[in-house]
Design a protein around this nucleic acid. Sequence first.
DNA 1: GCCGCACCTAATCA
DNA 2: ATGATTAGGTGCG
Length: 401
Amino acid sequence: MSEWRKLPLSLTELCIDTTLRCGQSFRWQKINDEWNCVLHGRLLSLKQDESFLHYKVAWPKSSPTSRKSAVSPKEMGDVDIQQGDDTEALIRHYFSLKHDLAALYDQWSESDTNFKKKAPKFTGIRILSQDAWETLVAFICSSNNNISRISQMVHKLCLHYGPLIGHIGDEAFHDFPSPQALTGKKVEAHLRELGFGYRAKYIAETALIVSNTKPEGWLESLTNPENPGWAPVSIPVRDEPITYKKAHEELLLLTGVGPKVADCVCLMGLGWNEAVPVDTHVWQIAQRDYRFGKTKTKTFSKAMYDSVGDHFRQIWGPQAGWAQSVLFTANLKSFSEKAGAVSKSVDIKVEVKAETESEPSFIVRHSRKRRTTAIVEQVKVENDEHSDVKITGRKRRKTRR
DNA sequence: GCCGCACCTAATCA
DNA sequence: ATGATTAGGTGCG
């Protein structure tokens, strides 16, 4: 393993402790004070202080034969002499360091008072630029699931199907398996045994589709050209230039990929910064803090999904996905000061809005020209979350009914 | 297009 | 203690 190297970086620009735990990547392991993960064929260790990100690398002794595409021959060839340079570039790419995070926080705070209020306690949260295939599979695992179990599942995928890269102590570290590695006949049954549940089928089928029915580099061809990926893959030429909408749409054709998973892949794996994955948490945030009302129906329709994303893109602009991840993290139980310290929102009564309030309501437009169903009504919320009541003492509790 | 339901699993809640 | 609910949803009818 190389010696420690360092990169000047403030905690405001990047906080790895938050960014690596907030449900973007499920593969980093914290051992003592160091974060470890295999990235593009090498074992990377990170630690951070106020002014620097420290890193070191370990390459496998013999090149892994199981995954040629993971590491280019060129990289493997001269790692001995220039691994340091290459790895710094990888880190800058992985953490999307080309974007000025402080400037973005300022911008979002200016256009959104709720963001301005929540963000100061959650600085340094960035969107990672992860491998598209890994992001796709990890988020197929995420449906109806929690971070802890998703992490276990992803770990099992690497352990059983990914190339071994190195050890830390007696712990083995594997890279993420290629699509081809997951196309075996017994993969679905095996994954079920490993506790993947109904997601076993989604993963096996998606691996088959990507590996056998799509041209080489198809997934990568959905990448935002402004934010190219790391791995040097040759990308098939497209008829039309790729757009966020098009990438999203193509991902939906895969098994186990709905709008939410597609947006996770767009945002964290394909460089589409405007993608806003709307999950149960983000829906809660939209209802509690952005005047989306409660709905009569139990399930969340595609129209509602699009409506929430569009609203946030309107407020936060072309990097809406980045802003979303900050509020998302602020809303995660595991990140609130103490479990239960987060006040619950007041129960909102929703009646179909009778009065024409000054506030616009959210209207869902059908794909054609008719504006029809008002699915999401704005609602008057007296949200003391937003009031200027100051509570200095201990946990505050909201009024319950 | 919308809606409700089943789906694997494990932890947490009432 | 045990059933319901929740956890970063999706496919199907």
